[in-house]
Simulated scan of single mutants.
Amino acid sequence: MVNRSQTFEEAIPPAVAYSRADGELWVIGLRGHLDPEELDSVEDATEDALVRWTGPLAFDLRQVGFCDSSLLNHLLRTARRRRVGVFGGDGTVRRLFELTGADSLLPSRPDLESLRPALSTLPRQARP
């Protein structure tokens, strides 16, 4: 509910729902409609995580209703600095990743538990 003293813009929930360590990963939960205007808070949360954490980052897209190439570019820039993966996301978000080929660069899974092995910092056993 909007407080009468708030403007419409102040009542919109922030783009970052949470940002926290979870096992070997740092998980940043995003929400809402993410376009260039909302990206500042996502960039701030990501930079904070990169400073505080040395392991991989996972972005929770379960509450994202829309994203455009600005979020995708942010994720790809972040992946140059650290291992990054995403989980959740509706059909339109997944389609954006597929159409751009980003799904081959950023591990994407339906949930956090299935993403963990793709971003594991532990050495993988050698295959026979």
Score class of each variant (00 low, 15 high):
80 R>V: 00
112 L>M: 04
60 D>Q: 06
86 V>D: 01
82 R>S: 10
115 L>I: 09
94 R>L: 05
51 V>S: 05
97 F>T: 06
70 S>E: 07
108 S>Q: 11
59 F>N: 03
46 T>G: 07
109 R>L: 01
55 G>S: 12
52 R>Q: 15
55 G>T: 13
104 S>F: 01
72 L>W: 09
84 V>G: 08
52 R>F: 00
116 R>S: 04
58 A>S: 09
107 P>A: 10
42 V>D: 11
111 D>R: 11
61 L>T: 02
83 R>W: 02
122 L>P: 00
73 N>A: 15
56 P>E: 06
108 S>P: 00
27 V>Y: 01
89 G>S: 08
114 S>C: 03
44 D>A: 15
110 P>E: 11
60 D>Y: 05
90 D>A: 11
50 L>I: 11
66 F>E: 06
81 R>W: 00
103 D>T: 03
68 D>F: 10
123 P>Q: 12
110 P>T: 01
125 Q>A: 14
29 G>I: 03
27 V>N: 09
52 R>I: 00
90 D>H: 14
96 L>E: 10
26 W>A: 04
52 R>A: 15
51 V>C: 01
41 S>Q: 15
44 D>G: 04
82 R>E: 00
107 P>K: 08
112 L>I: 09
94 R>Y: 00
43 E>A: 12
91 G>M: 10
103 D>K: 05
82 R>H: 06
82 R>Y: 06
70 S>C: 13
87 F>S: 10
94 R>E: 08
35 D>H: 05
107 P>D: 05
123 P>A: 13
38 E>N: 07
26 W>Q: 08
39 L>C: 13
86 V>M: 01
31 R>H: 00
68 D>C: 06
76 L>R: 11
110 P>R: 10
46 T>S: 10
42 V>C: 15
118 A>H: 14
44 D>K: 14
105 L>P: 07
88 G>D: 07
44 D>M: 08
73 N>M: 04
38 E>C: 02
99 L>F: 12
122 L>A: 15
55 G>R: 11
110 P>H: 03
115 L>M: 01
38 E>F: 03
84 V>F: 06
121 T>M: 09
112 L>D: 09
42 V>K: 10
66 F>Q: 01
92 T>Y: 13
127 R>M: 11
115 L>F: 03
65 G>K: 11
115 L>N: 04
50 L>W: 11
97 F>N: 08
38 E>M: 14
89 G>W: 01
35 D>Y: 12
86 V>L: 07
35 D>A: 13
81 R>D: 01
111 D>M: 06
38 E>H: 12
30 L>H: 10
65 G>W: 00
113 E>N: 13
28 I>A: 08
98 E>A: 14
97 F>E: 02
39 L>R: 13
88 G>E: 09
44 D>Q: 14
98 E>G: 04
113 E>M: 07
35 D>M: 11
84 V>I: 03
68 D>V: 10
108 S>C: 09
58 A>N: 07
73 N>S: 15
59 F>S: 00
82 R>P: 04
50 L>T: 13
68 D>N: 15
104 S>V: 02
105 L>E: 14
104 S>G: 11
122 L>W: 02
32 G>S: 10
120 S>A: 14
